[in-house]
């Protein structure tokens, strides 16, 4: 039962990622870019000069045939990882992406262990 749940969870995650590689959605990219001159807004939510410029640049890059990942790495080269709302999968961030699932697995193991122990006593 638990194992099935994990399979579902992981399957879903893989699926999301596959999905995102296939087509380049402008508005999705906008939502993932932080407006550096605003207070915690994405460029999709801002009309500042900076956000407008960045939207134009994103449009150009899409027209040049760049993938979503290439656009992110181009911009994070210029402005740092701070500009991306979805942190990259890399060595620095593996705890961020990994720990929630690790906690989920450990939690599941503890519960199974706990119930097993109880049922033995019974």
């Amino acid at each position: 039962m638990k194992f099935k749940i994990f399979l579902i969870v992981f399957f879903l995650n893989i699926n999301i990622n596959l999905h995102s590689n296939e087509l380049v959605e402008e508005s999705k990219i906008h939502k993932n870019l932080r407006c550096l001159v605003c207070q915690g807004q994405s460029i999709a939510d801002s009309n500042s000069d900076f956000a407008l410029t960045l939207k134009m640049v994103v449009k150009d890059l899409i027209e040049q045939g760049k993938t979503e990942e290439q656009i992110y790495s181009f911009l994070s080269d210029k402005y740092g990882d701070w500009i991306l709302y979805k942190p990259k999968f890399n060595l620095d961030n593996f705890l961020l992406w990994g720990l929630p699932y690790l906690a989920l697995i450990i939690g599941g193991v503890i519960i199974v262990f706990f119930i097993r122990k109880s049922s033995k006593k019974a």
Partner: peptide
């Protein structure tokens, strides 16, 4: 004129 080139330099204001 458009500000697009400045992105190459990491300019934000």
């Amino acid at each position: 004129m458009t500000g697009k080139q400045s992105v190459n330099f990491g300019i934000y204001g």
